[in-house]
Amino acid sequence: MAANYWDSTQRKYWTFTKQQLAQERRKNEEADRALVQQFPLPDRRLLSIHFNHQLCKLARPLSVRQQAIATAQIYVRRFYLKVEIRRTNPTLVLATALYLACKMEECPQHIRMVLAEARHCWDTTLTDTSKLGECEFSLISELNSQLIIHHPYRALAEYTATFALSAEESALAWSIVNDHYLTDLPLLHPPHVIAVTAIFLAVVLKPTQGGLGVSAQGVQGVLQSLSATMGQSSPARGGGAATSAPGTPGGSLGGGGGAAAQNRMMGLVSWLAESSVDIEAVVDAMQELLSLYEIWEQFTNNLCKDQIAKFVKARGLDK
């Protein structure tokens, strides 16, 4: 429930292992094999970035708060876990998810406003509120009416105070939480794990260099410390994404303040070791995020847009 993630439908029905997720998606793809082969799509994370851009574009003129956008992203991700995307009009699904999320997050928008803004900023052919209303039925039905979402923001706010993060670090951690909605992480780990992960990354990333300034060395260091904490000496666990991250600015952790930052990090690591937070999950989340930042380099909005338009047009899904 709202206060109690552990009894929530999110934990009971919408948290999976990677194997379960892969299996579910394989099952869906096999059911629509011809369709999937006929209309190739970019990596799911790139599509998610595209969706996020679209949602933010729609949300801005409506002054929708971030938490409602996040809820909408989760609805979309859950929905496409159950319904093959090539059978849907993603534009309609996005608009509907935001419309529904606004109601759940107590910042309701009129259906006509959502539709009007969608037409205005997405340049879509959506004209009929009843389409949105109908899609809302599909969405709620596929989501089994399980619409209450536990976000990492609350835990993040608590940890920010606990660890006395600077304003920059806190802002960075917040945007890392925003980024995790572009990955499968919301379907894999509890929200507090994401919050912890965001804080770790915020402390090693360099806020001054702007959003994505990943310090490969710093992250590598953290991953190793965490692995050590887990009592696993295997370097493979900490390696992977971080070391091979190309195109990320190098440089040592925190520039001149390396030693202080290092101490800070060790403090976090030992806090984590003593807490009941699943360290393995934190490491996994960190790697997922790093590989997101890596693949982000390849993102072009138009590619996603075109490939979606292909199946939508060919199948007349926007009619």
Binding site: A2, Y99, M104, I111, I140
Partner: peptide, 21 residues
């Protein structure tokens, strides 16, 4: 006869009923 969007209170009730036990 057309879909008009579900009222916020119905959405709340559906979500809460599903979540509570």
């Amino acid at each position: 006869i057309q879909y008009t969007g579900i009222s916020q209170s119905a959405v709340r009730e559906m979500a809460l009923c599903t979540e509570l036990a």
